[in-house]
């Protein structure tokens, strides 16, 4: 190395190079630029090279999709099937919130009880292990028979999807609760309820949030799949099936983008909640 021959006293570090605009924003520019490039190719390919008649039936350009989104979301035009997109959106949102809410109401207390009581744990463990290992969709035919075509079948599927990740994560978090801290609050006179409130729940919060994130994904999946098969009249999943049957690729993509945006928004919201609840933690970890 040339610098090793330079006396420390005479060596003057070169001034740090000024960071260019590109260097400062490289990830954003690369990420955004690539998306734009993909859309440009997607948009221009049919215009330049043309598509065969058969292909045209299954194809929609970004501008078609934006036009569809504009007419459905902003102008609130009636769908070629039934109702407006917002009616379907609200139906799906309602199902999602109801199913997820139900699974939270069941999974959180049950997870805490399972984690804290060895007796209850031993009783429920085989059921939970078996149910959790089984793909949820195999329950769909049974659920259809029991709850009939319609709302409750969809709710049941969403619930079955969301409840297990939440239950299992809550349980793991509770099992992991710091024994020392439990003894500390016990020594100051805490009863079982207070132990759970003061130590067990805050201690297992990272697990519960992780479970919630999983549960949300499963619940959205549940909404779509259940609406594909569940026989409800309204729902974004219903629209997708019908749009696909009538080759409305622009509507299919429009609904797909709605799902994408909603999922991103929910993920961001959960992250916000998590940050708010973990201000006491020394370091934050990047999550998706």
């Amino acid at each position: 190395m040339a610098t090793s021959t330079v006396e420390p006293s005479t060596y003057i570090a070169p001034p740090p190079a000024e960071e260019t605009y590109y260097e400062a924003h490289e990830p954003t520019i690369l990420g955004g630029g690539f998306i734009l490039a993909v859309f440009a190719v997607w948009e221009l390919y049919p215009a330049i090279f043309g598509l065969s008649k058969g292909m045209k039936l299954f194809f929609a350009t970004p501008s078609d999709i934006i036009a569809a989104l504009y007419s459905l979301l902003i102008l609130n035009e009636k769908l070629p099937m039934v109702g407006t997109i917002w009616q379907h959106f609200n139906a799906s949102t309602g199902t999602f919130l109801f199913g997820l809410g139900l699974s939270i109401i069941v999974a959180l207390p049950l997870g805490v009880v399972l984690g804290r009581s060895q007796t209850v744990d031993a009783m429920f463990d085989p059921f939970i292990t078996a149910f959790n290992a089984t793909p949820r969709l195999v329950f769909l035919p049974i659920v259809l028979i029991w709850f009939g075509v319609g709302f409750w079948t969809v709710i049941a599927i969403v619930f079955l999807g969301a409840v297990f990740p939440l239950l299992i994560n809550t349980y793991a978090g509770v099992k992991n609760a710091d024994k020392l801290l439990i003894n500390v609050v016990r020594s100051f006179g805490a009863n079982e309820w207070q132990i759970n409130k003061l130590v067990v729940l805050p201690n297992s919060l990272p697990f519960i949030i992780a479970g919630l994130r999983l549960a949300i994904g499963r619940a959205i999946l549940g909404v779509v799949v259940a609406e594909f098969f569940g026989g409800t009249e309204f729902g974004l999943g219903v629209i997708m099936v019908q749009a696909s049957q009538s080759y409305r690729v622009d509507i299919l993509f429009a609904v797909l983008i709605i799902f994408m945006v909603v999922s991103l928004l929910i993920t961001a919201a959960v992250k916000q909640i998590e940050n708010r609840l973990s201000r006491w933690r020394p370091a934050k970890i990047k999550t998706f």
Binding site: L181, R186, S187, F188
Partner: peptide, 17 residues
């Protein structure tokens, strides 16, 4: 446990949150 006794723990036992 009772309010007439209180412990200082070896590993502190502070609630981190």
């Amino acid at each position: 446990p009772g309010t007439d006794r209180a412990m200082v723990f070896q590993e502190f036992g502070l609630l981190p949150w």
